[in-house]
Design a protein around this nucleic acid. Structure first.
Lengths: 195, 195
DNA sequence: CACTGTTATCAACACTCGTTGATAATTCAG
DNA sequence: CTGAATTATCAACGAGTGTTGATAACAGTG
């Protein structure tokens, strides 16, 4: 009746589902930090505490694993769920937040995107995932003509900001007061959201 | 007196400077297309028409070669050289141009950036190069407080747009009329350039 | 001619990559 | 307990990486 076993306190024999979950979590963290190409299967397995051979065995391939993570990575965050009005400032403030008090544990989906967008293999996977799970839903909450193009532009702003900060570690932004950035970035986003 | 030799029409013996030039050009193209990690030394050498061993021999290492390219990649383009007034629309129109008639030959520095920003090795190199050759000079042409932070934000917009288009091949943007995008993107950039 | 220095080539090194086959270990049903 | 099924392990494969040592081919100069 027990899924937990008492085999001397060593390697308590995981279920396939749990091994999959561990690998997914470890891979998501690793890919976010170093990108698709730079992260090896052995590194992921080590972080997950499983054998390297389990990765292609449970997911088929490293690419399939990445696809599975990408497909679930770009759901609309809570900041994009409220009313369109005031969303620009809300998003800008959310993007600035990690600078002053970064939580370091929760998932930064844009850092995940930018770290792997360079790899041709990963780029196409990311493209469809981002469009299906982010740009499309966001555009459906918007009104006016060319909503999808404007939603894509919002994505470009947010992503560019994430690239500059998380990816390149730009000190130029952090040196200025937060309000300067929040004001400009928020206005730019808001201008795209409203027709 | 002749640098060209008549040795049967085979491998006309290049000077070291010309070999370096060929490798630089081929590497820049390859890195722009596939990113630092995905491009191998052998691939660069094949495109340049030289032996793979010449790359680490003439440049020290692949990383040093990349650094040399990155340092010369981010000079201010002509679009950023005119007056601040009207620069927003000018830049936006320049960024949209490749969609309708992309030249396919000239160097797209932001595509180069985004393709390699994922690699931890390349990211730090790109960071300093981008700051020294782009953000800093641009901020010096600007007036008002927090100029460097605002210049960085302009960079973020431009880069995010480049990521979405060149990197992810987003069809959302191209589907809409150009003027919609030029108008929004231009206004956002202009708002950062002026205090 | 011979001599010197630069440039190019080839093979090979040590390493990492993703993946797979054979096999052991553990769990669950009868 | 016996037997089938699931899960994990280990070693190894073939292919790829950046790099280097030894050596050949050339250029210019005496």
């Amino acid at each position: 009746m027990s899924t937990n076993v008492d085999n001397g306190g060593r390697a308590p024999r995981l279920s396939a589902a749990e091994s999959r979950g561990r690998i997914l979590a470890a891979a998501r963290t690793a890919f976010t930090r170093a990108g698709y190409d730079a992260v090896g299967v052995r590194e992921i397995a080590a972080a997950a505490g499983v054998d390297p051979a389990m990765v292609p065995r449970l997911f088929g391939s490293k690419e399939a694993l990445f696809t599975m993570i990408a497909d679930g990575a770009f759901g609309l965050e809570p900041v994009f769920e409220g009313s369109i009005e005031g969303m620009g400032e809300r998003v800008a403030r959310h993007l600035m937040a990690p600078i002053t008090h970064h939580t370091a544990e929760d998932f930064d989906e844009f850092a995940f995107l930018l770290r792997s967008v360079g790899s041709p293999t990963a780029a196409s996977i990311l493209s469809s995932a981002l469009h299906a799970s982010f740009i499309k839903p966001l555009s459906e909450r918007m009104t006016g003509p060319a909503a999808e193009a404007r939603a894509a532009l919002v994505t470009a702003y947010v992503m560019g900001f994430a690239v500059l900060r998380a990816g390149l570690g730009s000190s130029s932004i952090e040196s200025a007061g937060d309000e300067v950035i929040v004001d400009r970035l928020g206005s730019a986003i808001q201008a795209c959201l409203t027709p």
